[in-house]
Computed example of a mutant assay.
Amino acid sequence: MKKSAIVLSIIFALGAGTVTAQQMSKKDEVPVAVKNAFKKDYPQVKKVKWDDEHGTYEAEFKMGNKDMSVTYSKSGMKEETETSLKVTELPKSVISYVAQKKYGKIKEAARIVKADGSVVYEAEVKSGDLLFNENGSFNSLKIEKD
């Protein structure tokens, strides 16, 4: 009985080590072109967390007191940049729209700049993310399932 428990403990420990190694190697799968583009765009950023977003690569980092993320294609082309905002920094029309439509409290806010330079404001509410154009006009509700 003791041998079985020891053997199971060893197998579990090895399995846990394997998962950690797989997670580590996944981090290293960010293409060189993506890493180089990020270093060129944000040379002052030293700490970055990478995520593979179904073929695109998202870097999450802090710049000043703002949380930011930037998404690159596999070839290193910047697709969009997202910067966190205080809710009060959203255009007034966004705040008014959310209140008028009774979506509830805005939990988080962000300004997204697409590759073509267009701007989208994002207001996260209980039911999902509300997206607005750069003039603050409502575009869509994006509901993401965890």
Rank of each mutant, 00 (worst) to 15 (best):
K3Y: 07
S4I: 03
S4P: 02
A5T: 01
A5V: 03
A5R: 04
A5K: 06
A5S: 10
I6W: 02
L8Q: 06
L8D: 03
L8R: 04
S9W: 00
S9V: 02
I10K: 06
I10C: 05
I10W: 02
A13K: 09
L14A: 10
L14Y: 04
G15Q: 13
G15R: 06
G15M: 09
A16H: 10
A16D: 12
A16P: 09
T18Q: 07
V19P: 11
T20F: 14
T20I: 13
A21F: 08
Q22E: 12
Q23D: 14
Q23H: 11
Q23R: 14
Q23F: 12
S25I: 14
D28F: 14
E29L: 14
P31E: 11
V32A: 13
V32N: 07
A33W: 06
K35E: 10
K35V: 11
K35D: 07
N36C: 04
N36I: 04
A37P: 14
K39M: 12
K39L: 14
K40S: 10
K40Y: 11
K40I: 15
D41A: 15
D41G: 07
Y42T: 09
P43F: 04
P43G: 11
Q44R: 11
V45K: 04
V45Y: 00
K46H: 12
V48M: 07
V48I: 10
K49F: 10
K49I: 12
K49V: 12
W50A: 02
W50N: 00
D52Y: 01
D52S: 03
E53M: 05
G55N: 04
T56K: 05
E58D: 02
E58P: 03
E58F: 03
A59N: 10
E60Y: 04
E60C: 00
F61H: 00
F61C: 01
M63W: 11
N65Q: 03
K66N: 10
K66Q: 09
D67R: 08
S69T: 00
V70C: 10
V70Q: 01
T71R: 15
T71V: 06
Y72M: 07
Y72T: 05
S73V: 03
S75N: 11
G76F: 13
M77H: 13
M77C: 00
K78R: 15
K78P: 08
E79W: 01
T81M: 11
T81F: 03
